[in-house]
Design a protein around this nucleic acid. Structure first.
Length: 191
DNA sequence: CTAGTGATCCGCT
DNA sequence: GCGGATCACTAGA
């Protein structure tokens, strides 16, 4: 069985899904924007939460594709992943940054900031701006409150850069971070 | 601009 | 007990 959403085959390897997600619009209760930065994680990947097999925390990553995996980071922030591959595989894509386009006032209120460059430029910031918490863990990306919109003509032309992932201490050389080159909404520029 | 640090939870060894 | 798929803030170059 194949799982398509927003024109993307979520059964594909996570590094392919991560690249294809650049330019896709993600909304939570109508609030969000265009994805400009992602990172891929897979089962045979020392940096992945699924590397050592299923646990209570990472259960959603071993669930069906095109669902959310939300985890707490550093005891303070939430981080959002899109599960990919077939159910039971244990792969996903971390949503690291979006270009804020819909519900700017809501996002600014949640973040207590109004500089659009600081609204959603990082995985913790994205979740705070979109109101994502543990309650969204395991939910389908095809159903409310989530909404994924396919890349439009503009999004298809965005220049995609790749590089090493951020904030990890293993598999530092795997170039599984993807993003819109030179976008002002990245958590960190590409070199 | 870079480097250092505190905050604060909880899964895992 | 340790240490993160982070962020905000400070100090100093």
């Amino acid at each position: 069985m194949t799982t398509y959403l927003a024109g993307i085959d979520f059964n594909a390897p996570s590094h392919e899904v991560a690249r294809l997600l650049i330019g896709v619009t993600v909304l939570v209760d109508g609030v969000g924007g265009r994805i400009v930065e992602t990172e891929a994680y897979d089962r045979e990947d020392p940096a992945s939460h699924t590397y050592n097999g299923p646990t209570e925390r990472n259960a959603a990553m071993f669930g069906p594709p095109a669902h959310a995996y939300v985890y707490r980071s550093y005891g303070i922030h939430w981080c959002l992943n899109f599960v990919c591959r077939e159910a039971g595989h244990g792969a996903g894509v971390l949503i690291r940054a979006i270009e804020p386009l819909h519900g700017l006032e809501t996002m600014a209120a949640r973040r207590k900031l109004d500089d659009p460059r600081l609204l959603t430029s990082g995985p913790g910031r994205v979740c705070q701006a979109l109101g994502i918490t543990r309650e969204h863990n395991g939910k389908s990306l095809a159903l409310p409150p989530f909404q994924l919109l396919p890349r439009d003509a503009v999004a298809l032309e965005l220049p995609v850069a790749a590089g090493p992932r951020i904030g990890i201490s293993k598999a530092m050389d795997t170039p599984w971070r993807f993003g819109v080159a030179r976008s002002p909404y990245l958590s960190k520029p590409f070199r």
